[in-house]
Design a protein around this nucleic acid. Sequence first.
DNA 1: CCGATCCCTTGACGACTGTCAAGACTTTGC
DNA 2: GCAAAGTCTTGACAGTCGTCAAGGGATCGG
Lengths: 212, 212
Amino acid sequence: MVPTKEARRAPADKYDERRNQLAESALQTLGELGYARTSLREIANNSAFSHGVVHYYFSDKLELIIYCVRYYKARCVTRYDAVVAESTTPEELLDAFAAKLVETVQEEAAMHRLWYDLRTQSMFEEKLREAVLMIDATLEDMIWRIVTRYAELSGRPTSMTPHAAYGVLDGLFQQALLGHLTGSADAVDAMAAQVHALMPLMLAPAVDAAGG
Amino acid sequence: MVPTKEARRAPADKYDERRNQLAESALQTLGELGYARTSLREIANNSAFSHGVVHYYFSDKLELIIYCVRYYKARCVTRYDAVVAESTTPEELLDAFAAKLVETVQEEAAMHRLWYDLRTQSMFEEKLREAVLMIDATLEDMIWRIVTRYAELSGRPTSMTPHAAYGVLDGLFQQALLGHLTGSADAVDAMAAQVHALMPLMLAPAVDAAGG
DNA sequence: CCGATCCCTTGACGACTGTCAAGACTTTGC
DNA sequence: GCAAAGTCTTGACAGTCGTCAAGGGATCGG
């Protein structure tokens, strides 16, 4: 009998652990091959198990992938929190933020292209939408924490909605990722410069210090 | 014998015409199903031909798709030229540009999600990169024509690189497309507002008219 | 130590895929 | 009107896919 999560006895932990283990292998495979070319057998090959085990822990290929999306989110959501916490001036925050962006484009390119792949797939596959929109909103929140902290440190109010701020930064990030993956040597540095130029524009214009 | 484009006798036009016909059917199918779920048989089903004919006009599935990308580009590249040509004030240009963006998100959503799909696929499939990067550069030029004309009409110089301008606008566009396709009623209107707010930020700040 | 439950492997199924060869039908050149 | 070239259909191929059933060990409760 196929065990469901709630019907399981004691080792619900072990069950979830296996699911996470498979999600890990799936994410690795998906990041390498993309959604279109990833098969369950290939995922299993990149794990310690055989291909049949997938249907023991997931009812469906899509359920595995959706589980992966949510599992992946848990890793990303706090990526910039240290940057926010440790910066004490707007310039410091901006530098640290841009540096972190550059770092993550370079070192987690596979995961990021997978994210964009899955987000685009959700434009075609309705079942992916709920999970994708949820993580997209979470990423928007993450970006907004940066922007509001940057505004705070600058002593100026924000002049963009969270949605718009996320949209433009995500556009630059995606552009840099594409450039990075296609061999453009200066793509990530260009992104850093663009972010430096863009962030001040997300705040209301500084008043001239004429009055004091 | 498989005819190659250069070895053909008189009807090189008819040959290309058929290729375009197939590209049309392929684009329709790809826009509906996405790259991952589109098969050659499905493309042929959406055309007047049978599935075998694809290999008469294209050596490969990938060659067909790459041909589609280039074919698709030819339609997009002049989309905003009328807006540029007919606007006489910066406000008019901005309104017309935003309106055109809204229109194209709504009425050509399938083609746009396909474009983002293929562009993302190029992060995984090396053979797609050349065509994708070419059309991406063309789109960047298209956007830059808007921005420079906007700057001209405003009497202010631009303050962003073409790359950055394209990146941020594309981010907003993609965000609106995702929102539109996932049922968010105000996604496209939000994009219009965001574009209105963003475009002035792409120009150098207006000097205060204190000196006359 | 035995039976039951859990975990996992193996192998198979039907469906679908890209590709291509064989041939039929159509058009063209003479 | 015949032969050749061009165009398209049909059918098959080898392979891969998601899915699932049967069964083997492992583990655990008694």
